[in-house]
Amino acid sequence: MSDHSERLWQIFTDSFLPLLHAGVAFTVPLTLISFVLGLLLALVTALVRLSDIPVLSWIARFYVWIIRGTPLIVQLFIIFYGLPSLGILINAFPAAVIGFTLSVGAYGSEIIRAAIISIPRGQWEAAYSLGQTRLQALRRIILPQAARVSVPPLSNSFISLVKDTSLAATVTVIELFAKGQQIVAATYEPMLIYCEVALIYLILCTVLAVLQRRLERYYERFDVR
C-alpha cells in the first residue's frame, strides 16, 4: 500500500469511532426525542383540527401553515439565534429538539388526520351502536386502525428526520455532521470524511427501515378495508 492510501485508511479508522459516537450520542437521541414529542403534538393537532372547535382548530391550522410554509433551517435559526433578543435563551440541544418537534408535529398531523378520515364511517357507527362514547370509539376503534394506515408515511417522516437532524449542526449541536466538519477541518480530507459521514447515516437509516418493516408486518395480522 502506498503511503497516501495508508494515511487515508488511518484517518478513516481513527475518525470512525468519534463519528459513530456523535451519531449515537446526539443524532439518535435528537431524532428519537423529537419524533416522540412530535408525534404527540401531531396527534393533538390532528384531533383539534377534526374537532371543529372554532378557536382551537384555527390555531392548529395556523401552526401547520407556518411550519410547512417556512424552511426548517430558518425556524431553527429563529429559535436559537432569534429568541435570545426577546430574552428567551435556549441551549443548543433543546433548541434543536423544539425545532424538529414542531416540524414533525405539523407534517405528522396531516398524515394522522388523513388516516383518521380514511377509516370508514361504519366503524364509528358500530362503536356508537355498542354504546361507546366518542372518546372510547376514537381510542379503541378508530386510532388503532388509523395507526396501521399511518405507519408507512410516518416511517418516511422518521427517516427524513434522521437526516434533517444534520441541520442541528447550524445551531452548534455537535452531532454526526458537525463532528464530520470538525474532523475535515483537522485532516483536510473532505471527500473521505463526508463519505464516511454519509455511510453512518446510511447505516442508521437502514436499521430503522428494518424496524419499520417489522412494525408493518405486525399490523398486517389484520386487514383494513
Binding site: 361504519g122 357507527e125 358500530a126 351502536s129 354504546g131 386502525q145 396501521r148 383494513v224
Partner: peptide, 19 residues
C-alpha cells in the same frame, strides 16, 4: 347513550372491527 344501549344494531355491511 342511554337510548342507544337499549338496542343492538346489525349492519348490512357487518362493520366488524378488523383489528
Amino acid at each position: 347513550l342511554q337510548l342507544r344501549r337499549q338496542s343492538g344494531m346489525v349492519f348490512q355491511a357487518y362493520h366488524l372491527f378488523p383489528h
